[in-house]
Design a protein around this nucleic acid. Sequence first.
DNA 1: ACCTGAACACCGTTCAAGT
DNA 2: ACCTGAACACCGTTCAAGT
Lengths: 206, 206
Amino acid sequence: MSTEIRKTERRAEALSKDRIVEAAIAILDAEGEAALTFRALSARLATGSGAIYWHVADKQTLLAAATDAVIEQRAERVADGRQQREPRAAIRDPDAGGSSTRSGPALGRRPDVPRAVAVRGAADPRRRRRSARGAGRARQAGQFNAATALLNFILGVAGQNSAAARLDPRIGDRTDFLAAVAAQWTRRDPARYPFLHRIAGQLAGT
Amino acid sequence: MSTEIRKTERRAEALSKDRIVEAAIAILDAEGEAALTFRALSARLATGSGAIYWHVADKQTLLAAATDAVIEQRAERVADGRQQREPRAAIRDPDAGGSSTRSGPALGRRPDVPRAVAVRGAADPRRRRRSARGAGRARQAGQFNAATALLNFILGVAGQNSAAARLDPRIGDRTDFLAAVAAQWTRRDPARYPFLHRIAGQLAGT
DNA sequence: ACCTGAACACCGTTCAAGT
DNA sequence: ACCTGAACACCGTTCAAGT
C-alpha cells in the first residue's frame, strides 16, 4: 500500500506557480480585478498568504503571469482555427479584447505582450505558408505593422470596456451604455462641441 | 481696510474641487499614479484627508476629473493650432498618448472620454469649415470612425507606455526598451514563435 | 524546501467634533 | 458650510517559527 500509483488525474495538492495563476484567473473572471487579493487567493488555495510569496515574487508578477496565461489560451484558440472563419468575423468577436473575460484589464498593463500577441497572431500557419521566403521583407513589415496596429486598437477598446464595467458593473447591455454616453454628450455646450451633438445619434449604431 | 480688492491673482487659499484636481495632476505628473494618495494630496494642500471628501466623492471620481482636465488641455492645445502643422506630425507626437505626462494611465480607464476626445479632435474648426452641410452624412461618419479608430489606437499605445514606465521607471529611452523587448522575444522557442524571431530585428526600428 | 500566520506599514473612507 | 484628524477595515509584503 505504500506503492501508490500517482495518475495524472486531479491533484489539488502541493502549491505551485501554475496552481496559483490558475486560481488568480478564476478570481479575476468571477469577481474582477479588485477582488484579487493575496488573502482571497490564499483562502481559495487553503494556505497562508505568505506561502504564495514562495512561488510568486510579487502581485505585479502574478498579474503578468495571469495575463500571459490568458493570452496563450486565446492565441491557441485562434490558431487552432476554431475561430478561423472569416477574418472580419474574428476581428469583430466581442471576446477578442477581453470584454467578457474579466481578466481583460490586465492586458493593457503589460508593455510587451500586446506586441507579442500581434506577432503571435501573425504567426498563424495558414498565412505563413503563403508568404514564401521570396515574398520579401516588405510583406513581413506589412504584417507586423498591421498586426501591431490592430492589436493596439483592440487593447484600447478593451481598456474602455473594462473601465466601463468597473464604473458600473451592470453594464452588460451595450446599447444602453452607448445611449447613456450619447445622452451625456448632448448635455454639453453645443457651441463648444458641435460635432459631439451632430454625431451623438450615430454612436448608438456603432 | 475691510474693502480688500480681490484680484484674480494667486490665491492659494480655500479648498475647491479645481484646486484638488490641479494638485492631483501635479502629483501624477511628478511621481506617477501610485503616489497619488489622499494623504499625499492633503499634505500638499495642507489640509486634513477628510476635507477632500467634501469636494470630491471618491478617488475614482478624482481620477476621472483629473483625466478630463488633462484631456481638455490637450484638446485645447491641438485645436489652437499650435500643434497644427502637419497631421502626420501631430499623430506622431510622442506626447499625444500621454507618454511623457504621467497622468496618461488614467486615460485608458475611462469608458466614455476616448470617444469624446476623438470627437473633440474632429471638431477642429478648420476641418469643420470644409465639410459643408451638403457634404452629407457619409463624410461625417467617416470622420467619426477615423477619429475613433485613431484614438483607440493611441490609447492602446498610451496604456503600454505607462505600463512600461510602471514596471521600470528608468524606461526613458525608447530604443533601450525596444531592444530589451526584442531580446526577450528571441529567447522564446523559435519553433512556436517563428514570426517573433524573424521580426525581432524590425522592432527596434519601429 | 516549503508552509503558517501574526505583524508592519500603508491605504481609502468615515465620522464625531470643531469653527 | 467647511474643515480636522483619529479610527476602521482592508491591503501587499515580511519574517520568525514550524514541518
